[in-house]
Simulated scan of single mutants.
Amino acid sequence: MRQRWRAVLVRALRWAAWAAAYALGLAALVLAGAWVWWQKEPEARGTEVNALWARHQWVGEPHGDGEYRALARLLKENRITDVYFHAGPFEADGTVPPAKYRNARDLIEAMRRHAPDVRSHAYLGQIRVVDGKGVIDLDDPAVRERVLRTDATFLDLGFDGIHYDFEPIYPDDEAFMTLMDRTRELTRARGRLLSVALEQPTLLDAAQPVYKALIPRTGPVHYPPRPTARFLRRVADRADQVAIMTYDVHLPTQSLTGWHFARHTRATLELIGDRTTVFIGVPTYRTPLEWAETLPVALRGVRRGVDELDRPPKRPYGVGVYADWTTRPDEWARYREVWPPAGGAVKGA
């Protein structure tokens, strides 16, 4: 009996060793293939339509004219056409206390003086209530109405648009779509813009029902709120701009990270690039895998993705830099080396 169990154990260990070797070999092939793919220098240059997420202090605290001039100079040098100034977050009832944006009017007036070609958006969002967890319940019509009244307040202050960042947003979120419809009515009636930040799209739409069935939507382990192709098209048909939060990759090598940015750039532009302006989000903050996920890697990946398009999209596109408060001068210098086209003036989307 003991010998039989020993033989079973030996066979099990042998199979485990073969399985481990196979997995390691497959991983090595993937890494090698990604490395070879990554070596080609991108041909595509960047664009003159780009966005920047900006810190809350711009609307919440006073600034001198020299600070506003410096901001305007940075935007012009880096071909930033749209700035999402953090102006929230929303309270649970859909409002934003005026004390949080007491400097907003001064900011807007300074932007009109020093950066008249740059659009200033009120960047508003909150943690969406999902399955009883979260802060703001967009399923409540009264909350949505107060969100719209808050949007109108920011437009009255002079913002050029409303930029939503509610998280998480799942592709079956009809309350969010209703809010998008109503907000579009508001912004278009005022001649302003509606933009939205969304998570990176799914790698495989067909896997979403499996995730939904097997993994909860809340808790430390939950299925990711990735937009499906259908959902992304629906959002694009309602928004003037869609910014894809392509960062937080957590891949171990530059080549795999670059492939991630290239893949999402190509897929997103092919899917909605003819419908709306698209910004591919690129990071400048420090990540746990900071040797792999850097601004130069992200920009190179975006350019490789543009190279792989059969044709350019009909609508403008560019990158969205996240964020102004984490971008060092040397990163802006590198950005200017590899992204904006040489010469030319800032153009609108």
Rank of each mutant, 00 (worst) to 15 (best):
L295V: 00
G25H: 11
E199Y: 14
E308G: 05
L26I: 11
K40S: 14
P201T: 11
D310H: 10
P312N: 02
P313E: 04
L204R: 13
V278N: 00
F90N: 03
I162C: 10
V143P: 00
F261T: 04
V221S: 06
A152V: 03
G66C: 07
R55Y: 14
D237Y: 12
A115Q: 03
R102N: 10
D310P: 00
T183F: 04
V302Y: 01
R113I: 11
L107H: 04
T284L: 02
D160E: 04
D131Y: 13
G134N: 08
A28W: 11
A189N: 06
V196S: 03
T153F: 02
T268D: 09
V278G: 01
N78V: 02
G320S: 13
Y335D: 00
Y322H: 10
K40Q: 14
D93I: 05
R328C: 05
P89D: 03
P316E: 07
P201K: 07
L9R: 14
R328Y: 12
D237N: 15
Q208K: 09
H63E: 01
T265V: 08
R55P: 02
W18F: 14
D330L: 10
A142F: 11
Q208Y: 11
I162S: 01
M245G: 09
M111P: 15
A21Q: 09
V302F: 08
G191T: 03
A243W: 09
P201F: 12
A23N: 08
L75I: 13
E43M: 13
A51R: 01
T276K: 10
T246A: 11
Y223S: 05
G191P: 03
L26A: 15
R188T: 12
V143S: 03
I108R: 14
G60M: 12
A197H: 01
D237S: 15
V249G: 02
D131P: 02
R263K: 12
L157K: 02
R311C: 02
G219V: 10
R149L: 10
A122Q: 11
V143Q: 05
A267N: 13
V8N: 05
D137T: 06
T95M: 06
R102E: 08
Y101E: 06
L71C: 10
T95W: 04
D82T: 15
A323P: 01
E337F: 12
W15V: 14
R45Q: 08
D160R: 07
A262E: 02
L13W: 12
G305R: 00
L148T: 01
V147D: 02
P98Y: 09
P89G: 06
A142H: 12
W38I: 11
R119L: 14
D310K: 11
R188W: 13
P316I: 07
T218V: 15
D65F: 06
